[in-house]
Amino acid sequence: MITIKNAVVSYREDVALRGVSLSVKKGELVGIIGPNGAGKTTILTLVNGLGKLLKGQVQVLGCMLNNGCPAYLRRRIGYVPQIHNIDPRMPVNAGEVVMMGRYGRLGLLRRPGILDRQVVESLLSLVGMSHLATRPIGHLSGGEQQRVAIARALAQEPDILLLDEPTTGLDRRARVEIMALVNEIHRTRNLTTLMVTHELKTASAICNRLVLMKEGRIWSQGKPEDVLQEEVLDLLYGDDNKVANYF
């Protein structure tokens, strides 16, 4: 599904990825972990073509991505970006945001129909947001916005789902719920999922594989229990951060 070979990405002076190779098979749920600035977000943006590749190759859904990702491929890749501030006055409501997930497949000049509305409604209820569908998106809490973003990504009916720290900034209960939701939709919708997360415990429970990143490189990857060794984590996050802190 996804093959990245020796990818090098740089933002001006900063080198964000220094030769990363990763391949993800169909149906896998892969967790990407690592400290801030490791290049986790950057690797996701390579898959959906929002990031610019300096060197290396990226192949997604059987297509080589040379210069960005063509729209018809982006449509098949759902993306839940890292949380961002939304202007509370933004004239768009939650239901409309989910509907945006349909826009790519609809194409230009076509309006959403009954089918699209049904999809949006069922997704809103899947993520437990039906009662807030008409609220302005900027008025929702962080956790609610994450749910809406997940529903929007699913509205694309994607083959690949990319999630960037879907639980950051949420309370404990919301974190558990969102992770359970991710697990559920990954399994019930036959997705191939790449998720950046700092939830080591839950991630190791639901992911098929964990990828550890630091300083633009992949330090180790494999089964969660193999990757989450104390020494490895010490190396990654520094000595003070015992594994226990993450559980």
């Binding site: 929002l50 449509r75 759902g78 970006p81 945006m100 826009y103 929007r152």
Partner: peptide
């Protein structure tokens, strides 16, 4: 960015 990711 989200619009781009959706395929617009």
């Amino acid at each position: 960015e989200a619009a781009l990711a959706v395929g617009i």
